[in-house]
């Protein structure tokens, strides 16, 4: 794995994207999903990415997390340059340095909560430190449910287990793809509060894509995306402010 530049003295950002473009297809029919996006996410911050459908949110997430290769530009996760890694190196990067939380939790149905938390460690051919798993599960509030299987837990509980799974490798950054999209309001609020707490108190870094202004309002920073560019940013988000931004975006989009 090649090592990126180290910012002397200063903290290395958890995620750094420079002039990243992503183009699908070729010639006149090509679609430019990302257009020279540059972005830095500092360690310990909670960032939300919003935008209308087709604005490039998912592509941004995929390029940032090393699921997909950028057409041009560079992506660094911590000190590691994602650009230039091959398929299996990127898989290892995701396993060791990146965490994922999905809308539909995506826990393995046959495994207990404990085993589900362990998955990324197991993929690396190791066993999770039981202490660490216990600590993490306490942190996300599922320590009493470790022996249960997914169908014996509520959606909110499952998403907490998924969060613990994302954190178990102590990743540089956690990406969330609509992590509260499938939860009821109450559970969603609790999970968002937990995510905020994890970033502020434990210095974890979370970037999530969302449609929900309430979810976005829990973040430290909200980026607004349209036509593959970051068109706006809000550093003191509230629900009202986010809604206003979105309204403006959608109006200009028509």
């Amino acid at each position: 794995m090649s090592t990126g530049t180290t910012a002397a003295g200063g903290a290395v950002p958890a995620l750094r994207m420079t002039d990243v473009s992503k183009q699908y297809g070729r010639g006149p029919g090509a679609v430019r999903a990302l257009d020279s996006v540059s972005l830095r996410v500092a360690r310990g911050s909670f960032v939300a990415v919003m935008g209308p459908s087709g604005s490039g949110k998912s592509t941004l997430l995929q390029c940032a997390a090393g699921l997909d290769e950028a057409s041009s530009g560079t992506v660094h996760i911590g000190q590691v340059a994602v650009t230039g890694l091959d398929e299996s190196q990127r898989a290892m990067l995701r396993r060791d340095r990146v965490g994922f939380v999905f809308q539909s939790y995506n826990l393995l149905a046959g495994l207990t909560a404990y085993q589900n938390i362990e998955v990324p460690v197991r993929l690396a051919g190791q066993r999770a430190n039981p202490e660490l798993v216990r600590e993490l599960s306490e942190r996300v509030g599922v320590s009493a449910l470790l022996r249960r299987r997914p169908h014996e837990m509520s959606g909110g509980q499952q998403q907490r287990v998924a969060l613990a799974r994302a954190l178990v490798t102590e990743p540089e950054i956690v990406f969330g793809d609509e992590p509260t999209g499938a939860l009821d309001t109450g559970s969603a609020r609790q999970v968002l509060a937990l995510m905020r707490e994890l970033t502020h108190r434990d210095q974890r870094t979370i970037v999530m894509v969302t449609h929900d202004p309430v979810a976005a309002a829990h973040a430290d920073r909200v980026l607004f995306l349209a036509d593959g560019r970051i068109v706006d940013e809000e550093t003191t988000p509230t629900v009202d402010v986010v809604l206003r931004h979105m309204a403006r975006l959608e109006a200009s989009g028509c």
Binding site: S88, L93, R94, V98, G99, F100, V119, P120, L123, A124
Partner: peptide, 16 residues
């Protein structure tokens, strides 16, 4: 398919 896609995302490689 869904389970495999998730595992790929969280870092399982194709060979595994």
């Amino acid at each position: 398919t869904g389970t495999f896609a998730m595992l790929r995302r969280i870092g399982a490689d194709r060979r595994q």
